[in-house]
């Protein structure tokens, strides 16, 4: 079972990480409504993959060692699941059976 706030914290930690390489004009706000993927998104493809792996690592460290966001299913779900911080948090919680 996963608590959505814990997952949001993991996502916000990953946002802190990737913001270091984003430049001042492309900073991602730590807000559920922040767009991650698609129109309005500020991450390029390298940035998005780095972000995904940072979230994966943080969720694993938070007590879910076998969790993955880079399997075929996650990749297929990317356009909807990674649209915003909020949709991503819901997606992760769902994948963890929360």
């Amino acid at each position: 079972m996963a608590n959505k706030q814990q997952i949001l914290d993991a996502i916000y930690g990953a946002i802190d990480d990737v913001n270091a390489a984003q430049g001042s004009e492309n900073q991602i706000a730590k807000d559920p409504k922040s767009v991650l993927f698609g129109q309005g998104g500020k991450l390029d493809s390298l940035g998005l993959l780095t972000f995904v792996l940072q979230v994966e690592q943080r969720v694993q460290s938070a007590g879910h060692p076998s969790f993955t966001l880079t399997d075929e299913k996650s990749m297929a779900d990317t356009p909807t699941a990674f649209r915003t911080v909020d949709t991503l948090a819901d997606y992760v919680v769902g994948r963890l059976g929360g």
Binding site: A20, A21, Q22, G23, S24, L46, G47, T50
Partner: peptide, 10 residues
Amino acid sequence: DQLGAILKSD
């Protein structure tokens, strides 16, 4: 590339 981005924006 990410080293470049950090050197620029840090």
